[in-house]
Amino acid sequence: MTKVAIIAGGLSGMGLASAKRLLADGVTVCIGARRGADAAVVAELHEKLGTPVFVDKLDVRDTASVEAFVARVAEKYGRVDILLNTAGVYEEAPVIGHPDEMWDAHIDTNLTGSFKMIRAVMPLMKAQGWGRIINLASTAAHEGLENNVAYCTSKAGLLGLGRCVSLEGAAHGITCVSISPTWVETEMLKSFVDAETAETGLPRAEVQAKYEASNPQNKLVQPEEIADLVAFLTSDAARAITMEDIKVNAATNW
């Protein structure tokens, strides 16, 4: 039986790498994203994946959008076995003077969006007696970072969410775990390097090296490394791994 996976926010980064890995394992991959109805975006995604997959518009902040997306997947494939929540936003601001809209964007997307996706797929997984749910958290879920209050709070909330989902799913073959990476060499991180390069005038290689040096291994985590972990956690071999957060921290302390 072919497993069916939903990846929320799978157009780039760790979501895209996970899509590639799951496809290689024979999983049917369905990707939802805010730009999922843009024909040009879909064509580019299919080119990156090397094969067509189900892609559609999904706004995880919106209950109607979430329920409609999951319903379309269930109608097309008859089941949902795997949910990978990677949709997220990141902006920095101090607590004092922190904009409401920035706070709301982080909580609504990173935390509440993951909850809404889980709420929509769990009945299907319960009926099947099998399910794998993975939330993409962060090492920031475990540590406070200056000027990162909204991001840290939203990611920390995923850990509590996962514990509750694990308890409710345990008797029905549903697991729920989170993955907390340190710096991963994604498009988002590359944009940080580009911005800092432009702001400081330093050579890009020097700025890149600073991010690499923040990991004691002196190397950024690669999206494919996260994807390999996702593949294991969504397999039958990971049946007993639930209510857990797995740090991929390259020996960092944060």
Rank of each mutant, 00 (worst) to 15 (best):
T86P: 01
L23A: 01
S65A: 06
A40H: 11
I82M: 05
V73R: 12
I82S: 01
R21P: 09
Y77P: 03
A64H: 13
G32Q: 12
L84G: 00
C30A: 10
E44F: 03
C30G: 07
R35Y: 00
G36E: 14
R34H: 06
Y90F: 08
D62S: 02
E44C: 00
P52D: 00
P52I: 00
H46K: 06
N85Q: 08
K20V: 09
A39V: 12
H46C: 03
G78M: 11
L22V: 04
G50R: 13
T28R: 12
R34N: 09
R79H: 06
G32W: 09
D59M: 03
T86K: 08
I31L: 07
I31C: 06
A87K: 12
F54S: 05
V53E: 01
V42H: 05
I31R: 10
S18P: 12
S18Q: 09
A17D: 05
P52F: 00
A43E: 15
G88H: 10
H46D: 04
S18H: 08
A74K: 15
D56Q: 13
D62P: 13
D62L: 03
A24L: 11
V53A: 03
D81H: 10
V73K: 11
D62Q: 14
V29M: 11
A68V: 06
A68H: 15
K57G: 07
